[in-house]
Amino acid sequence: MEFLAWLESTPIAGAITTSVWMYATFETIHYIGLAMLVGSIMLIDLRLLGFARSLPLPSMLGLLPWVWVGFLINVVTGSLMFIYNATSFGMNRMFWLKMTFMALAGINALVFTVAVARTGERWLTAAETPAAIKVVATLSLALWLGVMTAGRWMAYV
């Protein structure tokens, strides 16, 4: 709690509070980051589930840098927005739900990365993705939808 209050008292937080355009700008950039992150993840997950089969899976996995760039943009803009209102967001259960979903999505992505490294050569160019990978892809879609939902709900609790 003291840490949160300290965050809110930093010059960065002060600048965001006094500025008329900063928060709106961060929030807008957060949306563009969201579109890059979730837009690319969704394309990859849906392709793993069998959608858009005319696009080769290995090339679709090449979209992962977009996921990372979107993620980094949102970590930065998200942290700035958090600092501005740290004591309130720090106590917000929807914020912690969002962080939980993100952590789970991260673990899930790690499982996927390990699976591609260990068994990928068997199925990356195959007609059908293994059922276990489809489960991972479905979980990924569900968890990111959870991140977005909890993120939006934060403003209402």
């Binding site: 949306y31 579109a35 837009g39 969704m42 394309l43």
Partner: peptide
């Protein structure tokens, strides 16, 4: 939330 999801689908595709 649905509007943000739709945006991600549209902009992604």
């Amino acid at each position: 939330t649905l509007h943000a999801l739709g945006m991600a689908m549209l902009l992604g595709a």
